[in-house]
Write a protein that binds this DNA or RNA. Structure first.
Lengths: 116, 116
DNA sequence: CAAGGTACCATGCGCCGCATGGTAGTGCCG
DNA sequence: CGGCACTACCATGCGGCGCATGGTACCTTG
């Protein structure tokens, strides 16, 4: 997979991520449960979206409050315990609905940008 | 009880639009100059993006401040005078740069959402 | 035991889409 | 003519979310 570097210093990027990053996280959790620190690394590796803990933790807290993810504490072989996140049924449904919304939105933007 | 309008500002769509709507407007102005009221209609017609004056006017004010658009007043055949907006060189350049940023971002999201 | 890596978290700022509400010009109908 | 609807402009404030900042604590290593 080609690596797409998205610098976090640009505020344009931060604006683009609004309303999307949340579902990128849900998508990352679809196949396997992960802990926050790992999510930051995995997101960067998979998509080039370089986020930070300051982004991820408040986001995950909100997802937990919304009931789209649930968590379990697990011991680490070395280091402090980790809180593992996984999708709930609600989260899985939300992700599915977002995918359709995203496709509509993406196509609308593509049409506009490609004209001319 | 008064009818309460569910605010779009907190909706999924409103979040998605962040950082994008601005460039959709620039894209609409690429081929021809338009006035704000018309832009709302044209955006809805061309892409299904239903915005409102409360969105468009503050946005256009910002674009003008940033120097990405410039305006001229023109008489209307019927009704109050219209402020017509058109792209500046700076605006055209910004639009072009955004297009590349958008493609990177879009592809990254697509990869994530399509996995699994 | 000090230092550094790992891992957690709360809090506040800034941006921008949107709702709200206001002003004014034109045209139509009773 | 008076009133209303439509067009067209605009300023202001709220709310949500990405991000920076800064803090705590566990474990390993020198």
């Amino acid at each position: 997979m080609r690596r797409m570097v998205v610098p976090r210093s640009s505020s344009l990027i931060a604006q683009l991520r609004r309303g999307v990053l949340e579902y990128c996280v849900l998508a990352m959790l679809k196949s396997e449960e992960r802990y926050a620190f790992d999510l930051v690394r995995a997101l960067a590796e998979a998509t080039g979206m370089e986020t930070s803990e300051g982004t991820i933790y408040p986001l995950l807290s909100r997802l937990r409050r919304d009931g789209t993810v649930e968590t379990t504490w697990q011991e680490s072989p070395s280091g402090p315990p980790r809180r593992y996140y996984r999708l709930t049924t609600k989260g899985s449904k939300a992700l599915k609905e977002f995918r359709e919304e995203w496709i509509r939105f993406r196509d609308a933007v593509d049409v506009l940008l490609e004209e001319g």
